[in-house]
Design a protein around this nucleic acid. Structure first.
Lengths: 243, 243
DNA sequence: CCGGGCTACTGGTCTATACCAGTAAGGAAC
DNA sequence: GTTCCTTACTGGTATAGACCAGTAGCCCGG
């Protein structure tokens, strides 16, 4: 496996992908030792620092672990990390092996409610796009989601049918908006009557209530989402690291 | 601010701490530009790669952000990241500016329930320490927590009073166990009758139900925790990053 | 006044090398 | 057979330097 020196991808990222490919294709098994840094450097004709850069990212992501004096090893496959990854609903559900669909409940331009204006850093009553969707996995209702986006930034957004289309894909492809991070809170609450009806819950029922504020790379908030996920159908998983 | 070359801490970690200190003490404000890498290297008499290593970690942690051609800037202070950090209850509550206390409900050795044995990779009915605590913040009940630990690894653990002492501190100081990572799930559920009573909830009530499996650096599971946090008193916050 | 080109700066990637602490294996001595 | 020492390896840290692409400001020409 050679690295392509003229390719736009940095060498360390190509090397990283090569190692991931070897792990994914079972060339290396869990807890198996990888070649040493020095050997990889020789084999791929790069400096050892380039190898280290690739391995450092893989270690950080939990794909491998390194032990001084012993070597580098394939880590146990990690469970879902969607609490770290900025992904949309469909991607999230697909990653769990389920089939995502959506039904649009509301798609309109409204004066922004005050909590939305504050979150999106808009002037009071500035116009926002309100997009409410019932989120379905394998034909069963999973979540109610309402997204608010500044109308001034995305004036033609509602020309799209978000029952079928990914909001994030449209933002990226049509508006060239690169979403790089989000801030999110998760809490537990009792389901409201409309949630019980739409999510087909047996009252009383608990839901995971999620707020998310999505930002561009310049730190500009462009999406504020309020969601209610069925407590009996959805759980978050995360990995914690020691400081 | 000089770096101590004979100190055991690597230079890049000392530099990182120095930058964090400058940010924390408001020497640099949010979105203010830090000195360039080359300038920091001159100022601290280290190589630029050492500076980069420190900055890279700070960028990864969200303390700073870097822009090619422009420079390095102080990031907006991030809200709690306890979904990324392996911290105990007391540290967690203190970080929110609240006063943590605990009441021990159960502290005994029992044959391990099957889910616990599976999680901790023990043989069926192997003895485990069961430590149940009511977790209190500012005098108000916040969570019910039951931790299970392999008795064979920590035979004298219950000699400690975990109303006052940190379990993680005891594991580290007395047993030299370094906890490096954990796997955690979070879901919403209705509170059970004993939870309603102990957490002083108004039924029906929603709780955040959390499972955590804590591992040593060798990947050995040493703690399995089941917790119920009041839905009205506790929320998780996390930052998401684009892939 | 505006636009383009040049220069000096920025962070990002990469090379080559050196040294340190930890690990493991082999050989020698007891 | 056991223990200790030496050697060769491992990843971790650090240095010095080079080159690339992006950014911003200044100057010159239209």
């Amino acid at each position: 496996m050679k690295l392509h020196r003229e390719a736009p991808d940095p060498l360390y990222l190509q090397l990283k992908a090569s190692i991931v490919s070897d792990i994914t294709s079972r060339r290396y098994n869990t807890n198996q030792r990888l070649p040493s840094e020095r050997e990889l450097a020789l084999r791929f004709k790069v400096s050892r620092m380039t190898v280290r850069q690739a391995l450092l990212e893989l270690a950080r992501e939990g794909t491998i672990y390194t032990r001084t004096g012993k070597g580098t090893f394939v880590a146990e496959p990690k469970i879902d990390q969607q609490l770290r990854a900025l992904t949309g609903f469909s991607q999230d559900v697909r990653a769990r092996g389920n089939k995502p669909t959506s039904r649009v409940l509301k798609a309109k331009v409204i004066p922004s409610p005050s909590d939305v204006a504050i979150a999106l850093r808009l002037t009071p009553n500035a116009e926002v796009i309100q997009l409410s969707r019932l989120r379905v996995a394998d034909g069963k209702p999973l979540a109610l989601e309402t997204a608010y986006l500044p109308f001034a930034l995305f004036p033609n957004l509602l020309n799209h049918n978000f029952a079928n289309e990914s909001l994030y894909a449209v933002l990226e492809n049509e508006y060239k908006v690169v979403l790089t991070q989000a801030e999110q809170t998760i809490e537990a609450a009792l389901a409201e009557p409309d949630e019980i009806k739409l999510l087909k819950l047996d009252p009383p029922a608990a839901v995971l209530r999620i707020q998310r504020l999505t930002l561009t790379s310049d730190g500009i908030p462009v999406e504020y989402v309020l969601s209610a996920y069925r407590g009996d159908r959805y759980k978050f998983r995360s990995n914690l690291q020691a400081r």
